[in-house]
């Protein structure tokens, strides 16, 4: 025997349950059918339980007003529109920033010998002395570089992220 998945009375039964007509205020024919139909018995059992649950939940729901939802949506739409409009500008800013960093790096490369000479001249320290100290106690340098490596992507994320 094949399993019956649905019944022709199912829709009528759901409507009766949702309109709170089941069982007393609906057709006798529907009642007598449901008494013998396995599918309809399950439908009544589940539909009634779910409908009661939905009614009870709906009773105490406090929703925001339509005006408030509309206002928030409008505000959000404007913000999104602004963001869309500003996106090309952000790309230009990023490109300009990258160019700036490049120029700064080039300048530093050109000025490094002069800066080194000036520093040594002013302090009287020999460069090999500094190197020896760095090799003996490298941790502050390693720590500084490590912190910079961790912070740099985080800073970039906050600068360029949408939120």
């Amino acid at each position: 025997m094949s399993t019956k998945f649905e019944c022709e009375y199912e829709r009528e039964l759901i409507e009766a349950v949702n309109a709170e007509r089941w069982p007393d205020r609906c057709d006798a024919e529907l009642r007598s059918h449901a008494a013998t139909c396995e599918v309809c018995q399950d439908v009544v059992q589940v539909a009634k339980a779910l409908q009661d649950d939905a009614d009870t939940t709906s009773y105490d729901v406090r929703l925001p007003s339509a005006g408030l939802v509309w206002w928030r949506a409008e505000l959000r739409a404007r913000r999104d529109a602004m963001r869309t409009a500003e996106r090309p500008l952000t790309l230009v800013h990023a490109f300009a920033g990258a160019c700036g960093v490049g120029v700064l790096a080039a300048l530093l490369t050109q000025l490094t010998p002069w800066l080194r000479q000036s520093f040594l001249h002013l302090t009287g320290i020999h460069i090999s002395d500094v190197a020896v100290v760095m090799l003996q106690q490298p941790w502050p340098l390693v720590l500084t570089v490590g912190v910079l490596l961790v912070l740099a992507p985080v800073a970039l994320y906050f600068v360029f992220s949408d939120k």
Binding site: I14, V17, N18, V46, L50, Q51, A54
Partner: peptide
């Protein structure tokens, strides 16, 4: 189930 039996 919810859509079928609560929302009809």
């Amino acid at each position: 189930l919810w859509l079928a039996y609560v929302e009809g």
